[in-house]
Simulated assay, not measured.
Amino acid sequence: MTQRPRPLVMGIVNVTPDSFSDGGQHFDAARAIVHGRGLIAAGADWLDIGGESTRPGAQPVSEAEELKRVVPVIEGLAGTGIPLSIDTMKPGVARAAISAGASLWNDVNALRADDALETAAELGCQICLMHMQGAPQTMQADPVYEDVVAEVETFLLARAEAAIEAGVPRESIWLDPGIGFGKTLTHNLALMAALPRLAGLGFPVLFGASRKRFIAALNGDAPADQRLGGSLAAALHAARSGARMIRVHDVRETVQALKIQAAIASAP
């Protein structure tokens, strides 16, 4: 039996005191590095390191503080052989992170900051462009769309074109529909249902729904650390829908679920 390839799994390393699920758990370089190595042992194909929370209502941090949080962690994980991603909206942080050993800039702001497009082209790294309506501080206040799928699709294609025009190679661009970033439950479900359409736009899709609030909205307000079942359901759906990488907290469980799904799909 030949298994169909499963999506890559990106493990989350939050070096923050206030991320929605694991804020403060790995809020120093040593603990974050240990956590990252644990995710690698659990089967992570990538690690995504972030030093500024983007949960709803999160307050921004200075560039200096973000650099202090993430650069030592990237340096500590750069020799593991696993590719690293920097989760930041700041071009200066991206520049330092790529220099320290990261190879993907995961930008929830889709390179809309001053000099972000030019920096991305100069760095020559992979880029993930995510859709977000508003900013983390206010994005969940009252998100409104006429057609969420069409609007997210139009936005992502426009940002990809802007990146290409700035000099980012087309083959270096990933897209992320931004589940939970300025979306209601209805918006999130519509985007997840439309993942095959988004995966057909000509760019690989990075999908992240791990432990997000929409799961609790469908399941009795379950706290973040009790959303594994919903996270796995979303990950399996994303895999079936064409996502190329899935960003998760629970790496071991997600890898196992994806392997089983791929084996069943490949059974004679």
Rank of each mutant, 00 (worst) to 15 (best):
Q3E: 13
R4F: 14
V9A: 05
D18P: 03
D28H: 13
R31A: 15
V34Y: 03
L39W: 02
A41S: 14
A44S: 11
R55G: 06
P60T: 09
V61T: 13
S62M: 11
E66C: 03
R69C: 01
V71A: 02
I82F: 10
S85Y: 04
T88W: 01
K90A: 11
G92W: 08
S103F: 04
N106T: 05
D107S: 03
R112G: 08
A113L: 11
T119I: 02
G124L: 06
I127D: 03
M130D: 01
M130F: 05
Q137Y: 13
Q137P: 07
T138Q: 14
A141L: 15
P143E: 12
V144H: 14
V144A: 13
Y145L: 08
V149R: 04
V149D: 07
V152M: 04
V152A: 06
A166F: 05
I173V: 11
W174T: 00
P177K: 00
I179C: 00
L185I: 10
T186K: 15
N188K: 04
M192W: 08
G200F: 10
V205I: 15
F207E: 07
F207D: 00
G208Q: 01
A209N: 09
R211E: 05
K212Q: 08
F214H: 06
I215F: 01
A216L: 10
A217P: 02
L218N: 06
G220E: 11
G220T: 12
P223K: 09
Q226P: 02
Q226G: 06
S231L: 00
A234H: 00
A234E: 00
A235V: 03
A243D: 03
M245P: 03
V248T: 02
A257Y: 04
K259W: 13
I260N: 05
I260W: 12
A263S: 14
A263G: 14
I264C: 13
P268E: 15
